[in-house]
C-alpha cells in the first residue's frame, strides 16, 4: 500500500478493540447522564399519544404520520428552477434514452479528437 494510503486509512484507527473500548466509555457516560434524570415518570393511558388538541388519534389516523413526498418539500420547492427541468427531462420514453446515447457519443468523440 502506498505511503499516502496508510495515512488515509491507518489500520490502527480501525482496530476493533479500540472501538469496543470507546463504546464502553461512551456507554458509561450515557449511564451517568441517565442517572441525572427525573425518576418520577409514571405511565398513564394517554401520555404517549400525539397531541391533537385532546382528540383521540383513532378519529383521524391520517394526521399521525407525515412521510413520503411531504418531507423535504421545502427544499424541492426552493430549488424549483433546478428540479423542474431535471424531472421533466426524465421522460421515460425510449426514444429520448437513445437520443442521449447518440449525443454523448458525439460529444465525447469531439472532445477526444480536438483535445
Amino acid at each position: 500500500m502506498s505511503a499516502l494510503a496508510y495515512q488515509l486509512v491507518p489500520v490502527s484507527g480501525w482496530n476493533p478493540l479500540v472501538l469496543i473500548l470507546l463504546a464502553l466509555i461512551v456507554g458509561v457516560l450515557v449511564y451517568m447522564i441517565y442517572r441525572l434524570g427525573n425518576h418520577s415518570y409514571k405511565e398513564t393511558k394517554y401520555k404517549r399519544e400525539p397531541f391533537l388538541s385532546g382528540n383521540s388519534p383513532a378519529d383521524d389516523p391520517d394526521s399521525l404520520h407525515i412521510g413520503g413526498s411531504n418531507l423535504y418539500w421545502g427544499f424541492t420547492r426552493a430549488l424549483k428552477r433546478y428540479f423542474e427541468p431535471l424531472v421533466r427531462g426524465h421522460t421515460g420514453l425510449l426514444n429520448d434514452y437513445l437520443y442521449w446515447f447518440v449525443i454523448t457519443v458525439v460529444v465525447i468523440m469531439v472532445v477526444l479528437y480536438f483535445v
Binding site: D96, W100, F101, I103, T104, V105, I108, M109, L112, Y113
Partner: peptide, 24 residues
C-alpha cells in the same frame, strides 16, 4: 482507435448506469 474508444466508453457507461445514459 479513438472512435472505437468513444463507443466502448459510452456503451459500458450505459451498462453501468452513468449519467446521461442512466435512464434505464
Amino acid at each position: 482507435d479513438k472512435i472505437a474508444l468513444t463507443i466502448l466508453v459510452v456503451v459500458l457507461a450505459l451498462k453501468a448506469g452513468a449519467v446521461p445514459l442512466h435512464f434505464i
